[in-house]
């Protein structure tokens, strides 16, 4: 009973925050909404008896990834997203595709729950240890050792890639970039002038 109530409260928060993420044009508002989704999902994981995943969700998503995102938003000082008036009908099309996708997702899940019965209704009561740190740790370093190693290598690659992507440009490189940008802007302005003349 309490679990159900908690689930619906946090599900409501998650959906509300997700909608606000899409609706807000200011990237920082979107980011704060997304943090709300993460926190609500973490609470839902606790109702699913997965405390370890809940803690890791907060630690990795809210504590690391979103801090990075907010840091980048603050650093770049981004403006609001400008609405794209010229292609207004595309929004309607996008909304329609969204509804189709939702229907499709629901159909797939409906089929899944229909065909395969959960092992036993009370199975998870007997398996109280499933979400515990110990069971996750043992499984991770025995049965799933190879994926863990692969993920480790992937993270290393990501670190190296990140460092190379954002390294400080040398002076000649920087000048080249600025020159190119200026040239591009001049061209754009000339094109605009040309268009106005027409």
């Amino acid at each position: 009973m309490a679990t159900t109530a908690l689930f619906f409260i946090f599900a409501g928060i998650a959906i509300g925050c997700a909608l606000s993420l899409v609706y807000n044009r200011n990237p920082l508002y979107s980011a704060v909404s997304l943090i709300g989704v993460f926190v609500a999902l973490s609470c839902i994981y606790i109702t699913l008896a997965a405390p370890f995943i809940a803690a890791v969700q907060i630690l990795i998503y809210a504590g690391a990834i979103m801090v990075l995102v907010i840091f980048v938003i603050m650093l770049l000082n981004l403006d609001d997203d400008k609405p794209y008036r010229r292609l207004g009908y595309l929004y309607a099309l996008g909304g329609f595709l969204g509804i189709v996708l939702l229907a499709q997702t629901f159909f797939v899940f409906w089929a899944v729950t229909k065909t395969t019965k959960p092992a036993v209704a009370g199975a998870f009561k007997a398996e109280e240890t499933v979400g515990r740190t110990m069971s996750i740790g043992t499984n991770m370093y025995t049965e799933y050792l190879l994926p863990v190693e692969i993920v480790g290598v992937l993270l290393l690659m990501a670190i190296i890639g990140g460092v190379i992507l954002v390294r400080r440009l040398s002076q000649p490189e920087l000048e080249l970039v600025v020159d190119n940008e200026l040239a591009r802007r001049n061209e754009a302005e000339e094109a605009d002038d040309y268009r106005i003349e027409l």
């Binding site: 920082l28 943090i35 405390p51 370890f52 803690a55 504590g63 801090v67 907010i70």
Partner: peptide, 21 residues
Amino acid sequence: LDIGLLYVLGITSVGVYGIAL
């Protein structure tokens, strides 16, 4: 909590937002 230490680390890491925001 079975995950007490992770819980503390996770919650304190969310505290960054207070300052950043």
